[in-house]
């Protein structure tokens, strides 16, 4: 149960990081005519200025490589985070010890009540 309280904060962090990564480059990509297919079309259409198109392509490729790299780091971070969330921590251990002591406390309480009710036993 403890886990459910802890999980949201890192999850939100990762979520917003991903949202940011996906959204921040979007206007840039839009300015560069979006997807590589669109760039191909642009190259085919603007045969009068091939030099400019090649430049755009190079920029796009570099951009894509950087994005892939960053995405890979994020994926690795998510995996590490998942593992950290899965792993039982000190909190779970302490919770369990508390449960056990509580259970045996109840047992001791019941036993002492029974003893009080018929003291000759």
């Amino acid at each position: 149960m403890q886990k459910n309280f802890r999980a949201p904060v890192p999850c939100f962090l990762v979520f917003f990081t991903i949202i940011f990564l996906f959204h921040a480059p979007m206007p840039l990509a839009g300015a560069d005519e979006g997807t590589p297919e669109a760039v191909h079309d642009a190259i085919a259409a603007s045969s009068e200025d091939p030099e400019n198109c090649r430049e755009v392509m190079a920029l796009l490729k570099e951009h894509e490589a950087r994005l892939t790299r960053e995405l890979r780091t994020i994926k690795r971070e998510i995996a590490a985070l998942n593992q950290a969330v899965e792993e039982p921590g000190v909190r779970d251990a302490v919770a369990g010890i508390g449960y056990i002591l509580g259970l045996f406390g109840i047992a001791a309480f019941m036993a002492s009540r029974r003893k009080n009710r018929n003291p000759e036993k």
Partner: peptide, 11 residues
């Protein structure tokens, strides 16, 4: 005693 040993086993 049982409570303590159980806790140790658990941890």
């Amino acid at each position: 005693k049982i409570a303590v040993v159980t806790s140790s086993f658990f941890v």
